[in-house]
């Protein structure tokens, strides 16, 4: 029985670690400026926890096998522990885990403590059950006010803009796809119409909840062109699984052309 436990625990440990190491299922291809640092932090965490995982499980397997009762007359060692060992692994665990956490400080700081670069492109991201809307301020660089009572999907006024009376709203552009130029800092403001949603683009390594009543800023820079998916990652109701929009990263000329097309369609 002791041997069987040792073998099974060892096998589970080695197979699960092996699948991780094969990278068959792994972090997807990344396309943002923060992603390399984040992926590096992930890998460092993976290596450290992976070593602890393998060592702890194999130590458990070994102890169960080595010290099993074989029916001989041996007695167990009478010991209440060892303070020196106790203190050393407490200290080691504290330094390792807290140190690992401090290493990741810079990534979190670059996303949340440091604001976007000056001149970053402004976009508002709106969530509703179960759609996404994106608002660009247009040539005046200013978003017009939102009037909740005027929101009416039937006439295409998704965000409750009063273009007739609010000068700032006149040139606002509301789209169903988030289009951005490559290598340009983008400053998003997260808003929600109804319940809490969450903006997640896995290739950007970026996730932020959208809480009704709050305007939450988050910024990023995409480094590769292409079409990616924005998915909702906070339970928002029965259509949560299909609350999806596209995220299109384009060269500057393509982007300008795309935005002009969107403006014309307003």
């Amino acid at each position: 029985m002791g041997l069987a436990i040792a073998i099974v625990v060892a096998l589970i440990t080695l197979i699960s670690t092996g699948v991780f190491l094969s990278h068959h299922w792994w972090l997807p291809h990344a396309i943002s400026t923060i992603a390399p640092a984040l992926d590096r932090q992930f890998t460092v965490t993976f290596i450290i926890t992976g070593i602890i995982f393998v060592v702890a499980q194999l130590a458990l397997a070994y102890a169960v096998w080595k010290f099993r009762d074989t029916g001989d007359s041996r007695r167990a060692v009478y010991s209440h522990g060892n303070t020196k060992w106790e203190l050393s692994w407490t200290a080691a665990a504290a330094i390792l885990f807290i140190g690992l956490n401090l290493m990741g400080y810079q990534i979190w700081a670059s996303v949340h403590f440091t604001g976007p670069e000056p001149g970053a492109m402004q976009v508002e991201v709106w969530g509703e059950q179960f759609n996404w809307y994106f608002r660009y301020p247009g040539p005046d660089g200013r978003f017009g006010p939102v009037h909740p009572e005027k929101m009416n999907a039937g006439i295409g006024n998704y965000l409750g803009l009063d273009r007739a009376h609010d000068a700032d709203s006149k040139d606002d552009i509301v789209t169903m796809t988030l289009g951005v130029p490559v290598d340009r800092e983008v400053d998003l403001t997260m808003r929600s119409k109804d319940v809490t949603h969450s903006f997640f683009v896995r290739e950007l390594r970026l996730k932020q909840d959208m809480v009704p009543g709050l305007e939450i800023p988050i910024h990023f820079m995409a480094t590769e062109t292409g079409r990616y998916e924005i998915v909702c990652s906070q339970l928002c109701g029965l259509g949560h699984y299909k609350m999806r929009a596209f995220f299109q990263v384009m060269d500057q000329p393509d982007y300008d052309q795309w935005l002009a097309g969107q403006a014309a369609a307003q």
Partner: peptide, 22 residues
């Protein structure tokens, strides 16, 4: 041990940018 160690990933806010609610 297995469940505790994945907490070391999730306890880091930077890694939560991709792992949260997954």
């Amino acid at each position: 041990v297995t469940g505790g160690l994945s907490g070391i990933f999730l306890g880091q806010p930077a890694l939560d940018l991709t792992l949260h609610d997954s």
